[in-house]
């Protein structure tokens, strides 16, 4: 697949998308960096993994971030729905810990539509919801050529309005842009490394 067909990104507006894999945080940060307005990160307070704002600063400004700490997933979803519906934010990231049922997924989707906001669920692997517009797997790839690289493989494994595919991307820290490196078919060596 040619790099110019990387048309599922930036994510489609007014929809809820899903991402999983080890680089899901990086994916979410890059999505936020490409949006103009503020964004909200909804997480359950008990989780040990936290977003490190200093690390985030290389991708997007932490001053755009509002973090909401909730007690459980029900609260998370309620907060996310409220934030999506309001439209004051451009992106709402939700950390999901148990699978969404159809009703919850659909409600988020409707809220995103009402507020014209992008929703992004960080899901554990295999816990996708049927209502999601796209589902991505983001995995880091070892870059033999550059030191301190941010080479990642982004695979789109579900797409309601387009085709699936896989791309190797790298975040350019200096210019704050995303580079699509080369089609993975030409990099057969890296494919089994990523597995």
């Amino acid at each position: 697949m040619a790099p110019d067909s990387f048309n599922s990104f930036p994510l489609r507006n007014a929809r809820v998308h899903e991402v999983f894999g080890p680089s899901a945080f990086g994916f979410a940060a890059i999505v936020a960096a490409q949006m103009a307005g503020d964004f909200m990160w909804v997480r359950e307070a008990w989780r040990g993994d936290i977003l490190h704002p200093v690390g985030l600063a290389t991708i997007c400004g932490p001053e755009k971030l509002l973090a909401a700490q909730t007690a459980n997933q029900t609260d998370s979803l309620a907060v996310a729905e409220e934030a999506l519906k309001d439209g004051a934010l451009s992106l709402v990231v939700i950390e999901i810990t148990r699978p969404l049922d159809l009703r919850e997924g659909r409600r988020l989707q409707l809220a995103a539509k009402a507020g014209n906001t992008v929703g992004l669920c960080l899901i554990p692997e295999g816990m996708g919801s049927n209502a999601a517009e796209t589902r991505w797997r983001a995995t880091p790839v070892f870059d033999a050529e550059r030191e301190g690289s941010t080479l990642m493989r982004w695979e789109i494994i579900k797409n309601k309005s387009g085709t699936v595919g896989a791309w190797d991307v790298r975040w350019d820290r200096e210019n704050r842009r995303l580079h699509v490196v080369s089609p993975p078919v030409q990099r057969a060596g890296s494919q089994d490394m990523a597995g």
Binding site: F25, I50, L51, H52, P53, G61
Partner: peptide, 12 residues
Amino acid sequence: WSVGRPRPLRLF
């Protein structure tokens, strides 16, 4: 935010 040395995105 000053970014001197590289810092991770996720901290645990």
